[in-house]
């Protein structure tokens, strides 16, 4: 399977995605209007604490729901020079307490280990969004669990379900089996085990056109099933809603689920979730150093609304904390039901 970009698919162009999303404003009221009704427009940051770095679009997997349109054919990755600019910003801004590394598969960036080591020198909490299969993809990655442990990194890993069928349908054949092996390797070095302080969190996202169930209930099932069948332990489960952009948007359109899914998101709009959306305390940095309100806005090429200050080289925390966050129709994905963020539900 190839990325939308490699296929020259019309949805590879973010403008086309936005056109699809902004169709039919009568049936699908503008998200900004919903926020206005609850007094949240313009949406403002509450204080930027999380510095989320997208280290590149290269990935060993090609998942059907991927909002990044990542894959082995994507070559855009962050350079050491841009990482150095990120480090300089983090050093100068102590309020940026957490650095969240994502991709693609961030580990495929040849400067990944250098960057992590430098971040730890700055004494920041570092999260890596690890797709699990990367650990087994090549011998050079087999020691990643030990590397994570040595640097006391929080590992957040996607496991769309605790059964093979649903996981492989979304992420590709063989992904479940490799993910289980990788989780066992992480457990072996202490991740997810009580008393080690090594945090291993899992991410659920629906394998289809539906919303996640209760995060609390699902976590119980994951814990019980993964322990029963594979003796795997982990800390918390984050239930994440699929955002209707990129490959997931393509899936919705091709499968004839788009309208029903959008209606579901809109009908499930939750003002409490809207109050707690992650873009209010996060800043997203693209592989080329441009700045965004979140990883989804990044993939839609919606740079932050700060004229002349849209690149890491122009970082201005005070200006960013006073900016208006850009909202579009895809934002309904973060405010439906219990809400959704990179840390799971926000209103449960």
């Amino acid at each position: 399977m190839k990325s939308l970009k490699a296929l020259a698919h019309f949805l590879a162009d973010s403008d086309h995605q936005l056109e699809v999303l902004q169709n039919d404003p009568e049936r699908f009221p503008p998200f900004a209007q919903k926020l206005k009704e609850i007094g949240l427009m313009p949406l403002k940051p509450t204080g930027i604490e999380i510095f989320q770095v997208n280290m590149g679009k290269m990935c060993n997997q090609v998942c059907t729901h991927c909002h990044v349109d990542a894959g082995p054919d994507r070559k855009e990755i962050m350079t050491r020079a841009t990482m150095q600019e990120c480090l300089d910003v983090i050093r100068a801004n102590p309020s940026l307490k957490t650095v969240d590394l994502t991709g693609g598969a961030p580990e495929m960036n040849p400067e990944f280990r250098w960057f992590v080591t430098e971040l730890k020198r700055l004494n920041r909490h570092v999260i890596v969004r690890c797709n699990l299969t990367i650990i087994l993809a090549n011998k050079k990655y087999h020691d990643l669990p030990q590397f994570y442990k040595d640097n006391n990194i929080e590992v957040v890993s996607s496991l769309p379900f605790y059964t093979q069928d649903r996981t492989d349908r979304q992420r590709g054949n063989g992904v479940f089996e490799d993910s289980i092996k990788a989780l066992q390797m992480l457990n072996d070095v202490g991740y997810g085990k009580p008393g080690t302080g090594l945090i291993l969190n899992l991410v659920y996202n629906p394998a289809g056109a539906f919303l996640p169930p209760s995060q609390v209930s699902l976590e119980k099932e994951y814990k019980s099933e993964l322990m029963k069948h594979y003796q795997i332990e982990f800390n918390s489960l984050f239930a994440i809603t699929n955002i209707p952009i990129s490959r997931y948007l393509d899936y919705l359109l091709v499968s004839g689920n788009y309208e029903e899914y959008m209606s579901k998101l809109i009908n499930a709009f939750n003002p409490v979730a809207a109050l707690n959306v992650m873009c209010r305390n996060t800043l997203s940095i693209g592989w080329d150093g441009y700045l965004y309100d979140c990883d989804f806005n990044q993939m839609l090429d919606l740079k932050i609304a700060c004229a002349g200050k849209q690149h890491i080289s122009q970082f201005d925390l005070q200006a960013f904390e006073n900016r208006n966050i850009i909202v579009k129709q895809h934002c309904y994905g973060c405010t439906a039901g219990s809400g959704s963020s990179c840390g799971g539900a926000v209103a449960e």
Binding site: T163, D165, G208, F210, L211, P212, P213, S217, L218, E221
Partner: peptide
């Protein structure tokens, strides 16, 4: 059908 599938039944 939706609810049961969403809640993880195969």
């Amino acid at each position: 059908s939706s609810d049961a599938f969403e809640k993880g039944w195969s």
